[in-house]
């Protein structure tokens, strides 16, 4: 793991990180100089206690959110990894290139979250065993390209909704919040592209979520529940202020969050 990278990343958005950790920036520099000389295994614990001190009591909640996010990233990275290793599943060329890119991002997210959790003084959760058929709901997930893409869409849209639902729990830590937002928008980019890949295969979907339509079927209803809303902060978006905004566009223009329980309900069938 690269501690300096994590701190640098946090510093980009929380300029006061060094001050939070230590009132004297110089002391931090000294810490890293020493850190490079002592056993690396001793560093995460020390760093974790520094973060605890810096961000106080919110660290527990924040670690919980990160562990939850890590579990979702394990799910996604394992899914794409298995897909890429399934001979004849993903067509060569653009599709193979896109899935490879997405898989690399999910793996990078796993590593980033593991490193961040470790630096907060906690052991990252281990990767669970997955059943991507969801107990037989998607028996052809790694043999039928369309099924694979449908499950990918459900995972990406769930990921977007899950991060969004946790943002509020990260408010106590500007660095972690921003990093989570920076992952969140990557998941949205993935979702957009996977949807375009499905459209190329003939599915009736757009890059954005129209009402609660999935173009998949009732088995993913939980993934899209609530996306159909056209009300935001008690304002009706359809035809807002006399503008010709359809209900479809009104629902597409805002992605909705999911609670942790809602996400677990979606993900649980995929746990072996």
């Amino acid at each position: 793991m690269n501690i300096q990278n994590i701190i640098d990343e946090i510093e980009k958005v929380d300029a006061n990180i060094y001050d939070r950790i230590s009132p004297r920036r110089k002391a931090m520099k000294n810490f890293f100089n020493i850190g490079s000389k002592v056993a690396l295994s001793a560093v995460p614990l020390a760093l974790g206690s520094m973060f605890n001190k810096a961000y106080g009591q919110t660290t527990g909640t924040i670690v919980d959110v990160l562990q939850f996010a890590l579990t979702l990233e394990y799910l996604e990275s394992d899914f794409y990894d298995t897909g890429l290793k399934s001979a004849g599943l993903i067509p060569s060329g653009a599709p193979m290139g896109a899935i490879t890119t997405i898989c690399q991002h999910e793996k990078a997210h796993v590593k980033f979250l593991q490193d961040t959790i470790t630096s907060l003084g906690t052991t990252p959760v281990t990767k669970p065993s997955f059943d991507f058929t969801a107990k037989g709901t998607f028996p052809t997930v790694f043999s039928n390209y369309d099924t694979f893409l449908a499950v990918a869409q459900a995972f990406e849209d769930t990921g977007v909704r899950a991060y969004k639902g946790q943002a509020g729990n990260l408010k106590g830590n500007a660095g972690v919040l921003t990093a989570a937002l920076n992952i969140h928008s990557v998941e949205a980019r993935h979702a957009s592209h996977i949807r375009q890949m499905r459209k190329a295969q003939g599915a009736d979907v757009k890059p954005w979520i129209t009402l609660n339509n999935s173009g998949i079927g009732a088995v993913v209803n939980n993934v899209y529940a609530g996306e159909e809303t056209t009300m935001q902060a008690m304002l009706e978006i359809t035809n807002i202020n006399g503008q010709a905004i359809s209900a479809n566009a009104a629902s597409e223009a805002f992605d909705e969050p999911l609670t942790k329980d809602q996400v677990l309900q979606i993900v649980t069938p995929f746990l072996a």
Binding site: A94, G97, A98, T101, I102, H105, V160, Y163, K164, A167, G168, K171, L181, H184, S185, V186, E187, A188, R189, H190, A191, S192, H193, Q196, P207, W208, Q232, A233, E252, A253, F254, D255, E256, P257
Partner: peptide
């Protein structure tokens, strides 16, 4: 914060689509 989150992911979807229209596969 949640409202901003609701919008930013839609902007992310837009960004990916526009990028793919320019050159497929450049979404991210």
């Amino acid at each position: 914060l949640v409202l901003a989150g609701k919008i930013v992911s839609v902007e992310g979807r837009h960004a990916a689509l526009i990028r793919d229209l320019i050159s497929n596969g450049t979404f991210a």
